[in-house]
Nucleic acid binder design. Structure first.
Lengths: 217, 217
DNA sequence: TCAATAGTGTCTCTTAGACAATATTGA
DNA sequence: TCAATATTGTCTAAGAGACACTATTGA
């Protein structure tokens, strides 16, 4: 018998939009195991204080980015004896979507460095099985948006329909038709025009919109 | 501090078709906790022998139904200090779909009785948070089939398109148009006609079909 | 006036949905 | 022949996709 209890952890793929391109937050580990390697932010369950793995994820993300996420989505649970060198482990994977300016990442005990990467090609070898986890999270996020969910959490409070379209395109990786997109947004209860408010620029002003109250994802 | 390590378990919603209606396998527990209550079949992770939670699920299901499932699908992971009276616990939920004649459920140490129930209204109070878990599993199964996946594992080796349509209807709970359904099956690479084989009866014979090799779900 | 982007109109093509029509068997 | 079910055909409506057109601003 190798081990009586598995190591129980949580990992989070935190996505954002940078310059209209989808990015994921990765950290450079400042502790063993995998010291110096890049990884998804994650942490160990604390049964004495966490009310569930969702709470673990919120706590972990708060401690590393100082941000309370409006909505975390569970993706999958990975497990096995070999995915973490410390032994038999379980990791429940979450993702979240935030505007990058809300994220004030903090280097500290467990983090040496923090950066945003292209989730479909991070160009780093990731620690543990995090490359696989990241693929899973990206797929889940894309499926969600392709199924009609709107990535509204990644936008500022007021935004134009063009902003929203760019966000959808960045997440799914596919370009959308303007007319089709706008037709569909008309039937969308979560996207409301702000009467009389426009974004001005060197062209025709664009109607500003806001998220309806109670929107979750 | 209440507890250092959480209890790590797996629960499985095993679905089948009985008389063209969707059913789920429930067991009456023969052990504490919740002795005598109905529950989804489940079991505890054994790190010394399981290669992952998927393997735990396969082992648990094998020990209780003597069946090797062709495909298990992970639904979600529930967790918290109160969902199991033994303390802080984690349960990863799976579902599977099988023809009922392949299931030879076995009463034993941990099972007093076994039966098939209507998953949308089991008419029993379920142990732990299994009522919630069952809802989750049913939703996941329905979404899968509504998204175009075919419940082929629930059918016998050779089947008619009408059989397949009934299976889809039973899973999703919605009735489908015959012509539409058949049109769609023509474009489905997993459903192949068996040349020259028909199901006979007191009416026009029906072409028999089989599942293409390599079909997973 | 022009450049630039917002916002709308329109045509085509695909496909779901509804339902009718035809086909083929055993009794 | 009839009952029963298999299998196919047809019409309509809704919606996606493509693309052009109009609208409104600042410079």
């Amino acid at each position: 018998m190798k081990q009586l209890f598995p190591l129980v952890t949580v990992d989070i793929a935190l996505f954002t939009l940078l310059d209209n391109r989808l990015r994921v937050l990765l950290i450079k580990r400042a502790n063993e195991p995998s010291l110096g390697a890049w990884a998804l932010p994650g942490g160990i369950l604390r049964p004495e204080e966490d009310t569930g793995l969702d709470a673990t994820a919120v706590r972990v993300l708060l401690s590393k980015t100082k941000v309370g996420v409006p909505h975390l989505e569970q993706v999958t649970t990975a497990s096995g004896p070999d995915r973490d060198p410390r032994g038999w482990s379980i990791s429940t994977l979450y993702y979240a979507l935030l505007p990058c300016d809300k994220v004030h990442a903090v280097a500290g005990d467990t983090i040496e460095e923090i950066a945003w990467f292209d989730p479909s090609a991070p160009r780093r070898r990731l620690a543990f099985d995090h490359a696989t986890l990241l693929k899973h999270a990206l797929l889940a996020l894309r499926r969600k948006v392709e199924n009609g969910a709107l990535p509204l959490h990644v936008l500022p409070e007021k935004f134009t329909l063009t902003d929203l379209q760019r966000a959808c395109e960045a997440v799914t990786g596919r370009s959308l038709d303007k007319a089709v997109f706008r037709r569909q947004m008309k039937d969308q209860p979560w996207v409301l025009p702000v009467a009389g408010e426009f974004q001005r620029g060197p062209q025709r002003p664009a109607q500003l919109y806001r998220v309806a109250d109670g929107f979750r994802f």
